[in-house]
Amino acid sequence: MDQYPDAVLFDRDGTLIEDVPYNGDPERVRPMPGALDVLRELRAHGVRTGVVSNQSGIGRGLLTHAQVDAVNARVEALLGPFGTWQICPHHPDDGCACRKPAPALVLRACEAINARPGRTFVIGDIEADVGAALAAGATPILVPTPVTLPEEVDRAPRTAPDLASALAMVL
């Protein structure tokens, strides 16, 4: 059995970076506490990383793909490169197959970085992240923020108070 997981996939807003609703401005990107250290540790152990993010601002007409790409580029400038970025640009009412809690973003990310879903962790801050992980056969870790509902925390199979504690559950 492998000592480390194949991959750790992260939600973007509220997990890797501070949640600024419908942010299209790279200058407003602020890493979450511990994010850089956690990513450095994962990369040092050869664990692949990726991002799975709902970006309904595109489907709502509040953001362009170019704005989301610019914010994602800033995230990488601050936190280092990710093996894959999987984004759902759809409006919640579109009925797409990729919007979390559907599994498609997680499955596409695993395929893109050659990771087995059963050997992949998904770290996020809301129940949709947990649901996507479970639906894809990956292991979820919920890292609650002030926007996480108490009942989401209660239902989550694994929770961690911060990214460093989530890392300790992964490695």
Results as ranks from 00 to 15, higher is better:
144 P>W: 03
144 P>H: 02
130 V>F: 01
124 G>V: 05
109 A>R: 05
134 L>V: 14
144 P>N: 07
113 I>A: 00
119 R>K: 14
113 I>L: 11
155 R>W: 13
130 V>S: 13
106 V>S: 02
131 G>P: 08
162 D>A: 03
156 A>D: 10
157 P>W: 14
158 R>P: 05
137 G>H: 06
107 L>C: 01
163 L>M: 09
118 G>T: 12
160 A>Q: 02
112 A>E: 14
137 G>Q: 11
134 L>H: 06
164 A>D: 03
149 L>V: 09
117 P>E: 13
139 T>K: 13
117 P>C: 02
152 E>W: 10
158 R>G: 01
129 D>A: 09
151 E>T: 08
114 N>R: 10
109 A>G: 13
133 A>F: 05
146 P>D: 08
154 D>T: 12
159 T>F: 02
129 D>S: 02
154 D>F: 12
164 A>P: 00
147 V>P: 09
158 R>E: 02
140 P>Y: 04
155 R>I: 15
116 R>T: 14
163 L>S: 00
107 L>V: 04
125 D>R: 08
108 R>S: 06
131 G>L: 09
159 T>Y: 04
115 A>I: 13
110 C>N: 15
164 A>V: 11
157 P>V: 15
152 E>Q: 07
106 V>L: 04
152 E>F: 11
139 T>F: 00
111 E>R: 12
111 E>Y: 13
135 A>P: 04
164 A>K: 13
137 G>M: 06
135 A>Q: 12
137 G>C: 02
154 D>Q: 14
158 R>W: 06
126 I>A: 11
156 A>G: 09
110 C>M: 09
157 P>Q: 13
120 T>F: 00
111 E>D: 15
117 P>W: 03
116 R>V: 15
112 A>M: 05
149 L>W: 09
134 L>R: 07
160 A>G: 01
124 G>T: 10
128 A>L: 13
165 S>K: 00
151 E>V: 12
138 A>T: 08
144 P>M: 03
132 A>N: 12
150 P>C: 08
158 R>H: 09
137 G>R: 11
121 F>Y: 11
130 V>E: 02
150 P>N: 07
140 P>S: 11
131 G>V: 12
120 T>W: 00
129 D>L: 08
162 D>V: 05
119 R>H: 13
116 R>I: 14
157 P>Y: 05
158 R>N: 09
121 F>R: 02
143 V>L: 00
144 P>R: 04
